[in-house]
Design a binder for these strands. Structure first.
Lengths: 192, 192, 192, 192
DNA sequence: AATGAATGAGCATTCATTCAT
DNA sequence: AATGAATGAATGCTCATTCAT
């Protein structure tokens, strides 16, 4: 998986070949198939791994009793950015192929694990929002929609900043832009 | 281009073959190459077309003198959603491949046209934000960052809702979620 | 097709690769796929070609008005052996893979053409037998069963003699054995 | 061997993998190689087993002193059909690969055992024919050729009926067709 | 006696792209 | 303006077989 991570990060999903990955792993291509049924599943396993890290970080945020909902939303920013920074290229890959048709024929097992994980992080974000609503400090709104917004924003910004880096590789504004975005959102949901 | 639009929408970028497109266009594959240097450029032309429509809609929003900056931000929501609704599958494709490695070797001409267009719509959004700031009704912040946020949010939500549709095809919450998102943002940038 | 014939004859269906065949044909493997959808279909086309030759020869026998049914059965022997001798290795291949599972996913078109041809030669043999029965010179019996017997005998002998050649390559008794077989059959169906 | 029989019958020689067979046998693939040098040899062992059953049945026919040569030929029919019915799919496989190139590199030991067995059943059939000739009730002819004919007919009909079942799976005419064939042959060899 | 782990060698098939006509 | 015919270059995946343990 480490080899796959490296190769996918370098070449993208379609650019990477099983042979590349095998070479990196100092194995033969056939051996890869002992552990992963297909290229798709190998890739999806990376996806799952990232999701797990993400969920973990987010749940940690939720548990921090000393923070109020608003502060928790601000803290999410760090959690999201940490995940990105831990392996930017793979996060980009994962986000890009999140919804790819090609990834639809995963084994039911892997597929449901990914769905579970996705549900979990949505629940965390939705939960924080709900807390704010019941506390009376947040405006009303559908908690799941809020979760979708935070997640979509993160994915969209990561991808978009990457695109912009394609135009001008010296610039990387993800961190401040993400911070600004979360600030706006955090202000936006507050009642006044 | 109409044929390509149809086929890319049906099968995605990698799923579509030049032969498929040629067939749809009732031409031979070779003929496609008289008009487009490569598959990537054909795809990018679609991309450009969509961007132009988007920019047009956004500039129209900017020009509506009767609206104040806050109202303009709310109006962007419609512009963005309209573009999506005009050809959802292709918008998804375009957004997904926005930053794809494969699209890095476009002809300089096409590449710079796309960059121009992208710059334009960012400038529109940034412009609206700036107006609000100078008017004194919006908080301070970097206008381009704001534009990135709006765009990233749009792209991220479109892609993410598409992913969720993969899990449960009956649900399509893009419209209300986008509306909620813009509302939050619009509230978030206001001074109070 | 000539190249395929040669290669299949040399190496058998599984032993032959599309690359071998392409090389023999002085084409690239990809070009083969312009004319045949798959290796199976290429092979089946050869099959069809042989069947057509066979049917032609058999229909010629049937039309020879100067022969009575018994003499026609004797004449079949020549027709069958001629087909074999025209390309022994391919006849063997065709007979061996006649019923192979792998050949079940042919295009409906090719598949039905083959069935048609098969029906034709069965009808010829059955027809000869029927003539003998209605003339009163042959015993009673199901004409199609008779056709199956003649065909099965031919295929079985060709394959079996080939097997024996595997044990001792110097011997080739197909011709006399086939002659003997047809003689027995011809005597066996006659009333006395 | 039981596992192999089952798997080969289900999937054919090429369709079956050593792993399939190992799984069915609740062993690891490697273990199979403790008992059989190769897939070919495993398959050939099944072949040999079937031949032995066949030879046994045929020798039993030959020994039945109460039958005259003509009746013995009729009795062969039952012997052959019994063997088929005991495991149709495997008989088909064995007959199909009887002469396969792939089976040429068996160990000398196995190879010669198979040849011995083949020789035995040919000798039985030839013997019955010879008895009829010396008794004066059969026409003259080469006894081995006669044996080849009976065997080829059996193999050819089994394979051909299987092919026809591929076209129309509801029909299975092997038994009556085989009976008719043996009747013709038995009548055909008699002097009158 | 058994096998977990590994792989060498292959192979059918695909497809963007070319170019003589 | 158009294309028929061709292909170079891949590539995911398979499977019989091996061998240290």
């Amino acid at each position: 998986m480490a080899a796959a991570e490296k190769i996918f990060a370098q070449k993208g999903f379609y650019g990477a070949t099983m042979e590349n990955i095998a070479e990196e792993a100092e194995l033969s291509p056939a051996t890869l198939y002992l552990y992963f049924r297909s290229k798709d599943e190998l890739f999806a396993s990376l996806n799952l791994k990232m999701l797990k890290v993400l969920v973990e970080k987010m749940e940690a945020v939720r548990e921090r009793k000393e923070l109020n909902p608003e502060q928790k939303i601000m803290a999410l920013k760090e959690a999201l950015y940490d995940v990105y920074r831990s392996d930017p290229l793979n996060v980009i890959n994962v986000l890009r192929f999140q919804s790819s048709e090609e990834l639809r024929n995963l084994s039911p097992d892997l597929s449901s694990k990914i769905k579970d994980e996705a549900r979990k992080y949505l629940r965390v974000i939705a939960g924080i929002f709900e807390d704010g609503v019941s506390e009376g400090s947040f405006m009303n709104g559908h908690p799941v929609a809020f979760a979708d917004i935070v997640w979509g924003l993160f994915a969209g910004l990561v991808l978009w900043e990457d695109t912009k880096k394609g135009f001008d590789p010296t610039k990387d504004f993800l961190k401040p832009t993400l911070a600004f975005a979360i600030e706006i959102i955090s202000r936006g949901v507050k009642k006044h």
